[in-house]
Nucleic acid binder design. Structure first.
Length: 330
DNA sequence: AAGTAGCGCAACCGCTTCCAC
DNA sequence: AGTGGAAGCGGTTGCGCTACT
């Protein structure tokens, strides 16, 4: 038997949040920081379950959320990351600092899926399906497998190279160049993607003041990983005794930019990026939640490698990922 | 102008994972 | 090592808005 749902209690309010509730929640978090969600309803008097509070905060109220149209770069990143990571929206969101997993998930389900389906039907090969159950002929698989493997290997290599360069202390200009050129964070037009948008102006003003006053050490739009994790958010709020969050923010930010450069180079070297990929791309997807060895083991290595502080320390993780190993899972 | 269909997004549900005891 | 509770995550739902007839 599973646990009873936390929202079974009578008197728990459901449905859309009112501005008043938002203000209550925001002012509480402003004071205590995110985390310990269990205590939030009790302490705020909100008639919401803790889960609902957390969701409202992470998906809507927290600073640094970008809303509205996805840029082409974000779109490409999502498509590529989805192919690599499957429907692990939280993991994908960690590479898109200003987007929530919910947002990305919604965008995928409403826009990208259709887009890719169109591409799929438009192309003869019917490749790059988001639904792996749509089978292709084995001969097709045999043909495209090698191509896909090479492509993946190239992708990984390029990402690795880009990150190494980005994190290399010898090349401090790398990141600043990216920043000044076209990091996707800078794509945000004023008004189109404010660092924080709320349904009410009051909350917006309140939070802006809060962000100025309370979040100076960790700028709102800074971190992917930290922003996505309430624990880490709490860390940022609670003066971050370890000093790690700032570092993590920086690394994460740089990583994002690195991905930006990666996708740009990817674009230039793979003009057919927008074309459907091979079906093998979706073998990363955790079809039927089966623990795919590559997605669970090797991609966690990838993530470890990507997030590893000293790029030199972790840069050999991917050396272990060979095509032969990949082939074992095909 | 009214009715209807489609779309987008916020929020919910339930399962899994993590962690403290 | 086992257990229970809290948090995290992904899938799904439902409502409001918009476009179309």
């Amino acid at each position: 038997m599973g646990r009873p749902p936390c929202c079974d209690k009578v008197g728990i309010k459901k449905g859309p949040w009112t501005p008043e509730e938002d203000i209550l929640l925001v002012s509480y978090i402003q004071e205590h920081g995110p985390g310990n969600w269990r205590a939030v309803p009790t302490n705020t008097g909100l008639l919401r379950c803790s889960k609902s509070c957390r969701l409202r905060w992470t998906n809507y109220l927290r600073p640094g959320i970008k809303r509205g149209n996805f840029t082409e770069h974000e779109e490409k990143m999502i498509i590529h990351l989805q192919a690599l990571l499957g429907n692990r929206w939280a993991a994908i969101a960690s590479y898109l600092p200003q987007r929530t997993d919910n947002d990305i998930k919604n965008y995928w389900n409403t826009h990208l899926k259709k887009k890719l389906n169109k591409l799929q039907t438009g192309s003869s090969g019917g490749l790059y399906r988001d639904d792996f159950s749509a089978s292709s002929s084995t001969s097709q698989q045999a043909i495209s497998r090698g191509q896909w493997e090479r492509k993946l290997q190239t992708d990984i290599h390029m990402a690795k190279q880009a990150l190494s360069e980005a994190l290399s202390p010898e090349k401090p200009s790398c990141l600043s160049e990216l920043k000044s050129s076209k990091g996707y964070l800078s794509h945000a037009k004023p008004g189109q993607a404010s660092s924080y948008i709320s349904s009410t102006e009051n909350i917006s003003k309140m939070l802006k003041g809060w962000m100025r006053n309370s979040l100076k050490p960790a700028a709102p739009a800074e971190s992917a990983a930290t922003q996505n994790s309430p624990n880490n958010m709490a860390g940022a709020d609670s003066a971050s005794s370890e000093g790690a969050p700032g570092k993590a923010n920086r690394i994460s930010n740089e990583l994002t930019e690195t991905f930006e450069s990666f996708f740009e180079s990817f674009d230039s070297s793979n003009s057919d990026f927008s074309q459907p990929m091979s079906p093998e791309a979706s073998f990363f997807q955790d079809e039927d939640k089966k623990p795919s060895p590559i997605s669970q083991g090797q991609l966690s290595m990838l993530e470890k490698w990507l997030f590893d502080d000293g790029s030199s320390q972790g840069k050999d993780y991917l050396s272990d990922i060979t095509l032969d190993e990949n082939a074992n899972f095909l």
